[in-house]
Write a protein that binds this DNA or RNA. Sequence first.
DNA 1: TATGAATGAGGCTTCATTCAT
DNA 2: GATGAATGAAGCCTCATTCAT
Lengths: 197, 197, 197, 197
Amino acid sequence: MAEQISLRKRKKFQARQTILNAAAQQFEVHGFANTSIAGIMQAAGLGVGTFYNYFSSKEEVLLTLAKNLREQVAKSILAASKVNQSSPELLELCCLCTARAIDKNRSILPLFTTASEHSDKPEQIGQSLSPGFRELFEKIILRGQERGEFRSDVPSNIISEMIHSIYQTTAFSKLEISFQENIRLKVKILLAGIRAR
Amino acid sequence: MAEQISLRKRKKFQARQTILNAAAQQFEVHGFANTSIAGIMQAAGLGVGTFYNYFSSKEEVLLTLAKNLREQVAKSILAASKVNQSSPELLELCCLCTARAIDKNRSILPLFTTASEHSDKPEQIGQSLSPGFRELFEKIILRGQERGEFRSDVPSNIISEMIHSIYQTTAFSKLEISFQENIRLKVKILLAGIRAR
Amino acid sequence: MAEQISLRKRKKFQARQTILNAAAQQFEVHGFANTSIAGIMQAAGLGVGTFYNYFSSKEEVLLTLAKNLREQVAKSILAASKVNQSSPELLELCCLCTARAIDKNRSILPLFTTASEHSDKPEQIGQSLSPGFRELFEKIILRGQERGEFRSDVPSNIISEMIHSIYQTTAFSKLEISFQENIRLKVKILLAGIRAR
Amino acid sequence: MAEQISLRKRKKFQARQTILNAAAQQFEVHGFANTSIAGIMQAAGLGVGTFYNYFSSKEEVLLTLAKNLREQVAKSILAASKVNQSSPELLELCCLCTARAIDKNRSILPLFTTASEHSDKPEQIGQSLSPGFRELFEKIILRGQERGEFRSDVPSNIISEMIHSIYQTTAFSKLEISFQENIRLKVKILLAGIRAR
DNA sequence: TATGAATGAGGCTTCATTCAT
DNA sequence: GATGAATGAAGCCTCATTCAT
């Protein structure tokens, strides 16, 4: 009996995953707005109605994808930031860790730049990715500025916004260079730019 | 007779402008995806059918808005780049000019980050803004690298992409700082970051 | 120009009427809940989307039908109630006038007994028919009670509710007797029952 | 062994009752049309699929509720009508008994006025309540007319229909008076109205 | 050229019903 | 017998687009 329930739950969990994957893929191919629920469920090999057993809207799927990514990134950063080191080193490390975590979910990030367009509650989605790493970055920068490791003539939130922008747009890059390497180079420039003289 | 024709042409031009303005405003308020042609035309105070006398789709309106912005930016840059100066100085000047031109059309830029989402031909729109100033930036950077004014260990297209990303995301910024000032600070960091050592 | 507009408006008015008639007929045949908008518009010989150029929901159609009926009844009663006469005579006259007005729109009345079921705002529809004649009846009864023409041991609103109930249920009657005659007989009983002794 | 079977039967009976009660409650709160089977079963604390072990449709549930009410009313009337008395007295007694029986199941009656709307077989449900007491009333009236106790210038079926209408609409009454008292007053008027002169 | 009513394709969502466990 | 996930039919509604005036 307990096993039966567990079996069913496992299946339900699997179906949920199937839908999430199908959605991510469809979003990547057609974009969020051009993806229909019917399309997602067809890609998932499930009936249309089944979608509503798991999610109440396309937005909720996006939110879920965002949450998953956010958690992965957070975990990855957390691990990296335990080691003790200088602020520039730490910032670079975190940036690269984040890049690596994002790279595994490349299809998802680009959505958040644009998702705010399609929702009645843009703020929810648009910034749902940030918490957990944007704040972390800002903390590191602040600490670096206090320690005199980073220039102080530019506010930390501007710098943090700049890092954020790098991730957002690099995900769209058409250049013939890997995502992580692209990020690495840009972070290199940024670090050089904010180093205290 | 000639005057009548000219009058008619002027009137036609006016209607077109009215639609463009209404569209820009609606896009800004509701987002591209959530703006309907009926909505645009209502805002324009014109009949729905009239839209199709001037444009064939919402995308075309967006493209037109982009083209207008692009031309303004290009003109602005062109004027700035005539003066002879060092590459960093020139780059900074061009960046600020661009910022100023964009600031006048703030409502339009944010659309291009997202517009690719909504179209069947994303590439057309998504990058429609760049030509005319992205290339210019790259040229300046290349020249600077050749002259030894900019570091050469990062490809010019990466740097140019980074500048591009600054414009795209700063347009969305929620920070309490003006668009132009925000851009200025970021460009400062970037310039410091790419200066040859 | 003015004529053209007028022509269009006339056509628009006609289409509205066509929809209202088709809806009334469909409601009568299949009931409100079992009538789909597609069904109405097919009966009207118009496209589905056209419905929304005129109404925003099935409920609004019902409300409109109710309003029309209400206005007819009110007009009919108003005309009748101008003549001066005893309260029982006046009440009877008004009842019969109402019956006649309703009879012309037989298909509509039955809906209001049931419509409250189907709406999120039941009170709106359920009682939308009453104003204009339920109150009138109550006024006549009250006056009759004051004058000693009607018994006073039963509250006027109970009597008025009883009249109301006669209309509502007689519209459903399966008896082989005309609607108006049926009403006439019931009103006869009621009048006999409320006459002061 | 026999006990086990009996236990099972009792359990089955219980589930059936649970569903009926939940359904009645849901019907009352949301209306018949707006009540889904899922909703009923959730209110019943049972799985959706279980519904079909007991009923084949929402209509059948309604029919069952009607049958139960009908039987209660019939039993109540039967008891009352055994005593020998004049037709008006008997009719009044039966009316009040009926009112009392209905009052205990207030939630159910209102459904039958409207249920016909929602079914493909309206006749089945719409009049499913009547048999057993409408006929009885008619018999009493007929007898009274034969005995000269009731006026004969109005057909008995009209009078019986009038009684029926009182129950149907009083169940919806918004007046600040109890259901039974409301019925009592209306029956009083009716009786006064049909008394032979 | 301007208009706006008509249109139907297409997306969203609900829900009765089935069926494997 | 109980369950609840899966299903797709069917309804609702929006909106780009056309076309007669």
